[in-house]
């Protein structure tokens, strides 16, 4: 089975958990810390990013509250946290070049790392594997979202 399926050219790795509603992904590390970022769909909708401003380390966030604001020439908005918890690390590289998110939404373009505070309950609301791909496919088709295009050097 392909572990990086695509929907309209948008890559959705199977091993991540997704909030399809908020276009975010989450990966729980072995130490229990959650890495959070924007999906390929989200970076494509936003376009080349000019700025990405994560919340500061120590910020406590409830699920659905912003962990960052991102802006392109045509869009500005929040990156909503898929879980509740405390920001323990931010991706400092984004301050130098926010297009890292466009180039590598699932690796170098991660946005914050959080110590979850209510993970067991909140993971139920996230989707992973083929269920996530199917849900995203349904949304992309329902909203007729444009196909993903990738900049040179894009990595999965």
């Amino acid at each position: 089975m392909d572990d990086t399926p695509e929907v309209r050219g948008c890559v959705l790795p199977l091993h991540l958990h997704y909030s399809v509603t908020d276009h975010t992904w989450l990966l729980i590390q072995e130490d229990g810390i959650a890495t959070i970022g924007m999906t390929d769909v989200a970076q494509n909708l936003a376009g080349p990013l000019l700025h990405a401003k994560p919340k500061k380390v120590g910020a406590k966030r409830s699920k659905g509250k912003p962990v960052a604001t991102v802006e392109s020439s045509k869009w500005v908005g929040p990156v909503k946290s898929p879980i509740s918890g405390e920001v323990v690390e931010v991706n400092a590289e984004l301050a130098k070049d926010a297009t890292i998110i466009n180039k590598s939404p699932y690796k170098a373009g991660w946005i914050v790392r959080m110590k979850p505070s209510n993970l067991d309950a909140e993971m139920d609301g996230l989707l992973t594997g083929q269920a996530a791909v199917d849900a995203y496919k349904e949304r992309i088709e329902r909203e007729d979202l444009k196909p993903c295009t990738h900049v040179e050097g894009f990595e999965i």
């Binding site: 912003p66 604001t69 908005g77 929040p78």
Partner: peptide, 11 residues
């Protein structure tokens, strides 16, 4: 409108 959207993104 863009500035207002930036503001709400910043809560």
């Amino acid at each position: 409108l863009f500035y207002a959207m930036a503001a709400t993104a910043m809560e």
